[in-house]
């Protein structure tokens, strides 16, 4: 009985938080036109969240690509179907792994930095000081970071996919000896624009979710050292779960 009560409470708490996050999104969206009027602020955030994440995204993508190349080759070789390695790798990456892994890496690299930056501003009264200076912190601080993050994730996903495919090509063609022409032509044959559309829509949704969770956790953190730490942790945990749930929902909807 106590267990059911506990479950009920945590479910209610989760729903309440979801509501708060959606309301916060509304507040941010209301300030987005003002944020777009100052592109310099947004491009600075694309640099922070996007450009500075490139190294981790590219490195991870290359290794993920090589692993898929190896596993794919191993499986396909048993069926004597090595030639379709390129198509298999591209579909796996573009539809699924690219958007998901990029969003998870983004949460770890950029989401934590967004949450702790805003959280520290909260803890040191910088946000309160802005309010008193008649500057809306949502307009000046939160909205540009949210927009910058949301723009960065689809771009990072594209980079992830490209580097991942190169990694798989390196292993498949260069190391394992799959025919290079077959690798690329089969990819061209089997990857439809709809597949790319699925990946792109996922990356857009994940970008919005990951950036929203990071700025929400930072903005609403307890103004203490512990509060900032917890906000950072919650950013990674909530983003990871949200991305995986959203991924299932979008996939189920599109297939």
């Amino acid at each position: 009985m106590a267990l059911i009560r506990q479950l009920q409470d945590s479910l209610l708490a989760a729903l309440r938080k979801l509501g708060a996050v959606v309301l916060f999104l509304g507040e941010i969206l209301a300030q987005c036109p003002a944020a777009f009027a100052r592109p310099a602020l947004i491009s600075a955030q694309i640099h922070n969240a996007g450009v500075l994440s490139l190294v981790i995204i590219m490195t991870s993508a290359f290794f993920v690509g090589m692993v898929i190349g190896l596993q794919g080759y191993d499986s396909l070789a048993r069926l004597r179907q090595e030639d379709i390695l390129g198509a298999g790798v591209a579909l796996t990456l573009i539809k699924e792994l690219g958007p998901v892994v990029t969003a998870l890496l983004f949460a770890g690299r950029a989401g934590t930095s967004l949450a702790s930056e805003i959280g520290l501003m909260r803890a040191t009264d910088q946000l309160a000081a802005m309010e008193v200076m008649a500057i809306d912190p949502i307009r000046r601080i939160v909205a540009p970071r949210f927009v910058g993050g949301a723009i960065s994730v689809p771009l990072l996903t594209a980079v992830f996919n490209a580097i991942g495919i190169l990694g798989a090509w390196f292993i498949g063609v260069y190391v394992m000896g799959v025919d290079g022409g077959a690798f690329w032509s089969q990819m061209q044959e089997y990857v439809d624009p709809a597949d790319i559309g699925e990946g792109v829509s996922k990356s857009i949704v994940f970008g919005i979710a990951a950036s929203l969770i990071a700025v929400y956790e930072g903005y609403n953190c307890a103004p203490t050292a512990e509060g900032v730490g917890m906000a950072t942790t919650r950013t990674v945990v909530t983003t990871s779960i949200a991305v995986l749930i959203l991924d299932y929902m979008i996939t189920a909807f599109l297939i």
Partner: peptide, 25 residues
């Protein structure tokens, strides 16, 4: 308002901190 912990924007120089309310408003 002067905050107890000064609440300066840590990423901005002294000049930019003082200029901040003017630039924004």
């Amino acid at each position: 308002m002067l905050f107890q912990n000064s609440a300066l924007l840590t990423d901005f120089s002294v000049f930019e901190n003082v200029a901040f309310p003017v630039r924004e408003n």
